[in-house]
């Protein structure tokens, strides 16, 4: 029976989604540059489910500076800015449990579907939410 599955596998599409390209490019960054220039097409990632827990979205104007998110965050992602009474999040440390979203009393925090967060610099603007 396993042989039947194996032979039929030869004629079906692979189970793996070939993100970002069908064949591994020599340089991923170079490939992404070509995609931006419109010279290559990106194989899209598998769509995320509706309530996916991605990078935390922060609405600064709603934040009241109560620091509840800081109290519940297990990874100590969130830094308090005392002058502005707002927060700054270091996403590189985030474990995506979204407990801060549950704790926030004014809905200033939300789960976003962003998950392509790799970076070579852990304090880059893309990984700092404020």
């Amino acid at each position: 029976m396993i042989l039947k599955t194996l032979f039929s596998q030869l004629f079906t599409k692979p189970a793996t989604n070939r993100f970002p390209a069908k064949y591994m490019p020599k340089s991923v960054l170079g490939f992404l540059g070509r995609v931006q220039a419109g010279k290559a097409t990106l194989v899209p990632p598998v769509p995320v489910p509706p309530r996916f827990r991605g990078k935390i979205a922060y609405r600064r104007e709603k934040c009241i500076g109560c620091q509840l998110c800081i109290r519940v965050c297990p990874a100590k992602v969130i830094e308090f800015l005392p002058e502005a009474k707002k927060i700054r999040m270091h996403v590189a440390r985030c474990t995506f449990c979204a407990q801060c979203v549950d704790a926030c009393p004014v809905d200033a925090l939300a789960e976003s579907p962003d998950f392509l967060l790799s970076d070579t610099d852990r304090s880059s603007p893309a990984l700092t939410v404020e």
């Binding site: 189970a15 489910p49 827990r53 979204a98």
Partner: peptide
């Protein structure tokens, strides 16, 4: 096994460490 992981991602929002 991917099927059950996909379902867990659907239910929890995370593929692993479901919180």
């Amino acid at each position: 096994r991917e099927q059950v992981l996909d379902l867990l991602e659907e239910l929890s929002g995370n593929r692993i460490d479901y919180a």
